[in-house]
Amino acid sequence: MNIFRFAGDMTHLISILILLLKIYATKSCAGISLKTQELYALVFLTRYLDLFTDYVSLYNTVMKIVFIASSLAIVWCMRRHPLVRRSYDKDLDTFRHQYVVLACFVLALLLNEKFTIQEVFWAFSIYLEAVAILPQLVLLQRSGNVDNLTGQYVLFLGAYRGLYIINWIYRYFTEDHFTRWIACVSGLVQTGLYADFFYYYYLSWKTNTKLKLPA
């Protein structure tokens, strides 16, 4: 475990806690895409199938449980909590994510490390995570401006991906047989998706105006 990876896990955890805090404190989920949250819950559930079969470390096991629990808690809140669900703007959250799920699954069947259930679902979760943010970015563009909490949420998510890429570069140079092509390529695609958001976020910060994403 290197510092980049640990920092990446922490920023990832912070991004999820920011969201939970926002929903819990304001009893509102305005501006948050339920579809993105459902995709993230699916990412964790399909990636951590080895939760009970492979014990890597206490840290890994605890973090996996925290990620699964927190992502399901967010989805449950946005679907079931009487107060929160009222503020969910479903007519804005219209990204057809089922096609994305299907495309990722087909890709995982074709491109995986080993044609076994666990490896196919692992590859599926890697591809799905790269595009899971799309409904949220579409929702941000639809709703015009991004309130600071959702913006910070995407910012921390981007930091998590960026740190993971540095972690892979570090491991590539320090470990002789480290290769993670599937995760690396998919991680690069995912970070690229965030880059345009960061560009607008930086512009709004620099020109000190409310962040307006080009509709």
Binding site: R5, D9, S57, K64, K114, Q118, E119
Partner: peptide, 10 residues
């Protein structure tokens, strides 16, 4: 199960 590359990252 060494034949499968154990995923040590999250």
């Amino acid at each position: 199960s060494k034949n499968r590359s154990v995923k040590d990252e999250l």
